[in-house]
Amino acid sequence: MDAKTGFFYLFSVVLLFAAFRVITARNPVHAVLYLMLAFSQASAIWLLLKAEFLAIALVLVYLGAVMVLFLFVVMMLDIDVDSMRKGFWKHFPLAALMGAVVALEMAGVLLGGFRLTEDPATAAMAEAAAKGIQYSNAQEVGTLLYTQYVYPIEIAAVILLVAMITAIALTLRQRKDSKFVDASEQVRVKARDRMQLVKVAATRKAEATPAAEPEKAK
């Protein structure tokens, strides 16, 4: 067994352990930390597969932004863990069934696919070297995303935009502490509705101040 295979098994074992602890940890903060560990191990495995762009994107996006945000949110929220665990065994059969279905699907994919005789990254590097150009993993991913998968990317972008707008609308709707403004009222507004003239009494003249007394002669 070479060093690359050894690192793969090491990262895989740590990844499986961290993923198991994510769903079994009693403390939500510990669960988030284990999830961050799982993402870091997945990034290391992608590095072994010569998918540098995906590995760096996983570290920057999930570990550097999303999971840190989750960690701060979980730490700031006062979560009652005991009340959340009351319905655990009630929903356990459905959760176990869904987990079994996902495991069978993953087993079917792993057993039926990924039987490659040649490393795709190595073949792409050799082809780029034969053409006299420098191989770039990020360039290859960008080319695939914006040529072969351009329509799925656009559909996903529209769905994410709609989800973001919907989340903002649901958050700001029917809240007393939010400054909700009806757009139709803004369109129908008139100048007389915004400005009101008020008569103010004239100001009084300033009273004359008494002259200062001359200093007495010494």
Rank of each mutant, 00 (worst) to 15 (best):
A95Y: 10
V61P: 00
V102F: 13
A217Y: 12
L144E: 07
T203R: 11
L58F: 02
A156Y: 06
V61Y: 04
L170P: 07
A129F: 08
A38H: 04
A18Y: 02
E215T: 07
A208G: 06
Y135R: 01
V74F: 03
F7H: 09
L145P: 04
K179E: 14
D119G: 03
M98L: 15
D78P: 08
D193Q: 05
A206L: 14
L15V: 00
A157E: 11
L172M: 10
K90M: 12
M67E: 10
A126S: 05
F39T: 01
V198N: 02
F7S: 11
T166K: 03
D80K: 06
A208L: 13
L54C: 01
S40F: 13
D182A: 05
D80R: 05
L10F: 15
Q196L: 15
T171G: 14
A202H: 08
R26F: 15
V74Q: 04
A107R: 03
Q186M: 12
E52D: 14
G6M: 11
L97D: 06
D193E: 12
F8Q: 07
K50L: 13
V29F: 09
S136M: 06
S83N: 07
G64V: 01
I165W: 13
L170T: 00
D182S: 00
T5Q: 14
M98F: 13
L63Q: 02
L160M: 09
V32F: 10
V13P: 09
K199I: 06
K199S: 14
E213I: 04
A202W: 05
Q174V: 05
R188N: 14
R173D: 10
M76S: 12
K131P: 02
V68M: 13
R173K: 13
G113W: 03
Y34T: 00
T117R: 11
V158F: 10
L54Q: 04
S43Y: 05
P214H: 00
